[in-house]
Design a protein around this nucleic acid. Structure first.
Lengths: 242, 242
DNA sequence: CGAGCCGTTGAGGGGATTCAAGCTCAGTGG
DNA sequence: CCACTGAGCTTGAATCCCCTCAACGGCTCG
């Protein structure tokens, strides 16, 4: 986990304009601030890289920062009382991670990088200060919260319902939302698919193989898939039509 | 759905001090306001009653109000693309319903009363105005959002995981949280249990009957249960211990 | 009293799990 | 260079849980 401070004092510094020109600025929490607002905060924000399968934080931990995802995919996990893992949500580019620390609460989930992940680390105190004056910032925060809630409910309705094949297909659709231009995206390990969809690794494997044979997807390397969206969407529709 | 305005101008009016003395005030969104703050808003807040199985609002509808639950249980539903209903969350006393309208968004779910429900109806514009000055109110709002998010994820981890018997047991535990003093609480119809736990009404019925025979619960009237918590919690533990 | 809804229970079949055996492939060290 | 190893993936066979289909009983209500 490497941390790089983002300097902006010296505008000629190569990283000087990182925040202002950040590609995800429009998606990120500080998108509502003008350049002057950014000037007040840039020095406190750090850029971070997290390697696949590395944890960002753990449930119960009392953190002092929230994060914005610049690139990559992060998963939120919980351990059920039976002792097995359940993945309850994914976050991608532009999503806010760990807003509960702004309320001085411990993190609600384990957060783990799925792919290589780039983050902006935002100290809690920074948001506390800004929140005094900037109502717009608070509104933006509420937007994020609502989006997360919506994602959670959609996950429940889409990925926790119906037979295994249907759940896998819907997961693929959701993974497709994080794909790059060519439809190439991250494919979880079979065990992770199992923890997302509440099924065994064998069932997950059988279904992925079956969909590969049907031409819905193509495995690319160890952790990659190329989704053939036409075939995928058709398969989903066929599944939903009874 | 009956609506009763809450007056406070005339302190001798029987409903005059409803807001100030409201039993759920500490749980509700305006708990952070002092009496002076309450004075500015009470005239705009209406008390509402909703009968069981009556809708509060529908997904996609552009509402102009949020609600606080004073008593009763409300469920949030979605219709999956396959066309069947999925209940994604419950809300009880003190919970905030429909905060997405504060962001000028349509309601995210269908909301339906499970039991008889008492609500406070709070117009969006009121929160908008207050939000300008009262940062404390915005913070309180964020608390609600985070709680809802946490509930949604807990629902996923608890009620969408594992074999049917386990899911029913955990649902009973969750329903027990909304119970009155004597352990008497609302029991969903078999069909509703099915929509919560993704199982058929037959499976739900079999398991409820089985638990009744085991002495975990007692049916009381059409929609009531008395939970025997000791036996229930023991059954849950036995389930989790493999 | 019949109609309709809701809940219960049974029998049979199907889909997912369990148990088990190979397979692929990257990394390691002889 | 290549066997060796282990983790992850695949596939098969048997079992079991849950769904499907079906019949029936209790209850309310017109």
């Amino acid at each position: 986990m490497s941390i790089v401070p983002i300097y902006r004092q010296d505008l000629r510094h190569p990283q000087a304009q990182v925040c202002a020109s950040c590609g995800v600025r429009q998606f990120a929490i500080f998108g509502v601030l003008d350049d002057a607002g950014l000037d007040r905060i840039h020095a406190h924000i750090a850029s971070m890289d997290v390697a696949p399968d590395r944890p960002l934080f753990s449930r119960g931990e009392r953190g002092a920062a929230v994060y914005t995802v610049r690139s990559g995919v992060v998963r939120f996990e919980r351990v059920t009382e039976r002792g097995d893992r359940r993945i309850v949500r994914l976050a991608g580019r532009g999503d806010l991670i760990g807003p509960e620390v702004l309320l001085h609460r411990p993190y609600a989930d384990d957060a783990v990088a799925c792919t290589a992940v780039q983050l902006c680390r935002i100290p809690r105190t920074l948001v506390d200060e800004l929140g005094q004056g900037e109502t717009a910032l608070l509104r933006e925060l509420m937007q994020r919260w609502q989006r997360a809630l919506d994602d959670a409910e959609a996950w429940l309705a889409d990925l926790a319902t119906g037979p295994a094949r249907r759940r896998v297909l819907r997961l693929l659709v959701k993974l497709g939302e994080h794909a790059d231009g060519s439809g190439l995206t991250w494919l979880p390990r079979r065990e992770e698919i199992g923890d997302m969809l509440d099924m065994t690794i064998e069932t997950a494997s059988r279904l992925i193989s079956q969909l590969r044979r049907e031409g819905v997807l193509e495995l690319v390397g160890a952790r990659g898939v190329r989704l053939h969206m036409a075939a995928l969407l058709q398969a989903v529709r066929r599944e939903d039509a009874l």
